[in-house]
């Protein structure tokens, strides 16, 4: 059974294409990590799954129901942690949990859920006084109400400290063990790598990779990062290296060239640099990490502000 299936989904805002002809299948019972830099279209896809927005073209099925026609059937079995949400400042955490419990007709205990997501002591406080992280924990709690068959979590660790993000992953694992399918998006590879069975990488509204985490790792194990110090660097040298068959990415500063390539191609790359007039003074070889791979996939558009650097969270 498939939990989520997208066929040819396109979403356009005027001239801007947010998602382009996307096909995606998520199997029931899996934890699917939906990766991509900010602005890649992840939230657009998720908003379509939840019928917050309507795709311009294409078919979406969630838990066997048409996402646009049978919205209620989808919502009855889905727990949602959306992005850019807000709660009711004047109501307490308990009010929110009770609203969700009444809405789903579940027999859950608000206090047990609040304990589980770590806001047990704040359950009777108004949400207006919650920190960002506490709000995030509360909405995760409301998403867990009624043991949903599918959890859709859009950037769930926003506003959480590393410990909170860790607890969130523990909950995701526990939910998957119970039998739920978890679909969650992130721009931070580390969050996905640790917990997901499968990963899809979205870039500019298109899926550029879809594989298991192990599969992705295998695909890059043969990859090497070659860093070469050069005396000078003619433009032609970069172009020549880029044109080589086994090279996946090339970047350069004034006197350093960083090349990701198949392990077997490293000598070809060095020779090519020499031939093109860049005298190599020194070089270094390292294995490519999954993080670098992610950066490779999402290189051209990645928002490289400090906050969004995937590496930052990986090293925490």
């Amino acid at each position: 059974m498939t939990a989520i299936e997208l066929r040819g989904v396109t979403k356009q805002y005027g001239d801007v294409t947010a998602v382009a002809d996307l096909d995606l299948v998520v199997e029931e019972g899996s934890i699917f990590g939906f990766l991509g830099p900010n602005g890649a279209g992840k939230s657009t896809v998720i908003n379509c799954l939840l019928d917050y927005i309507r795709p311009t073209e294409g078919q979406i099925s969630v838990l066997g129901h048409d996402a646009q026609e049978e919205t209620l059937a989808v919502r009855e079995r889905t727990g949602v942690l959306p992005q850019g949400f807000d709660l009711y400042d004047r109501l307490t955490g308990r009010h929110h949990l009770e609203f969700m419990i009444d809405s789903t007709g579940a027999a859950d205990d608000p206090e047990a859920i609040a304990e589980r997501v770590g806001i047990g002591d704040a359950i009777d406080r108004q949400v207006g006084g919650y920190s960002r992280g506490m709000t995030q924990r509360l909405i995760l709690g409301t998403a867990l109400v009624g043991q949903p068959d599918l959890l859709i979590l859009d950037e769930p660790s926003t506003g959480l400290d590393p410990e909170g993000a860790h607890e969130m992953r523990e909950i995701v694992r526990a939910e998957a063990d119970r039998g739920a399918t978890v679909f969650f998006s992130s721009h931070i590879l580390g969050q996905v790598e640790a917990v997901c069975d499968e990963v899809g990488i979205l870039q500019n509204g298109s899926l550029v990779a879809e594989d298991t985490v192990d599969g992705l790792r295998n695909a890059i194990e043969a990859e090497t990062t070659l860093t070469a110090a050069v005396e000078q660097l003619p433009d032609a040298a970069l172009a020549a290296v880029r044109a080589l068959a086994d090279v996946s990415s090339v970047s350069a500063t004034d006197t350093t060239v960083t090349v990701q390539c198949a392990d077997a191609a490293k000598m070809t790359v060095l020779r090519e640099l020499e031939t093109a007039g860049a005298t190599v003074e020194d070089f270094e070889l390292t294995e490519t990490s999954l993080e670098e791979l992610f950066l490779t996939y999402t290189d051209d558009e990645t928002d490289t502000s400090d906050h969004d650097r995937p590496g930052e969270v990986l090293t925490q």
């Binding site: 949400f85 709660l87 809405s103 789903t104 998403a143």
Partner: peptide, 17 residues
Amino acid sequence: GERESGSLKFLLGAPHT
């Protein structure tokens, strides 16, 4: 107001049309 703030997403995250 709820559309602007995003609380509509919470409301519609529950089984309501």
